[in-house]
């Protein structure tokens, strides 16, 4: 299972990449494997304010719809149009082209409190 060491993770299987005050969010390799074939991604509206833990996007497989939660509080600044057009990117490149949304975080330091790769690895094993 691929768990990049430069990302942060939360217990609902989202990953966060922080660059300045912008956080890019997607779902982990483990999550995509559990969900299997992603056939639809519902992106959040740009400008929406979300709190940590809010259902923010939806990823759907043939069988089920799964909420994607905001791993951190902030404002949605972008949704990934590529996963909307080609939802399978969430499966094939979960940490790259399969990112789901970007947000401007309120408190960049809060990202540091999320799990690191080792802690996430421990959680899923």
């Amino acid at each position: 299972m691929n768990i990049p060491s430069d990302l942060r993770y939360n217990n609902s299987h989202e990953w966060v990449r922080l660059e300045g005050d912008v956080a890019t969010v997607g779902i982990t390799d483990h999550a995509q494997a559990e969900l299997t074939d992603v056939v639809f991604v519902e992106l959040p509206a740009v400008g929406r304010q979300v709190d940590m833990g809010d259902p923010t996007a939806v990823v759907e497989s043939v069988k089920a719809a799964s909420d994607i939660y905001a791993p951190i509080s902030g404002e949605i600044i972008e949704g990934n149009p590529e996963v909307e057009a080609d939802p399978a990117l969430v499966n094939t490149d979960p940490y790259g082209k399969g990112w789901i949304f970007k947000m401007r975080v309120k408190d960049a330091a809060a990202v540091e409190k999320l799990m690191d790769a080792a802690a996430y690895q421990a959680m899923i094993s």
């Binding site: 299997t36 074939d37 056939v39 497989s61 043939v62 069988k63």
Partner: peptide, 11 residues
């Protein structure tokens, strides 16, 4: 069993 590898592949 709900699936083995992938519902799309099995379908």
């Amino acid at each position: 069993p709900v699936q083995y590898t992938s519902i799309l592949d099995e379908h």
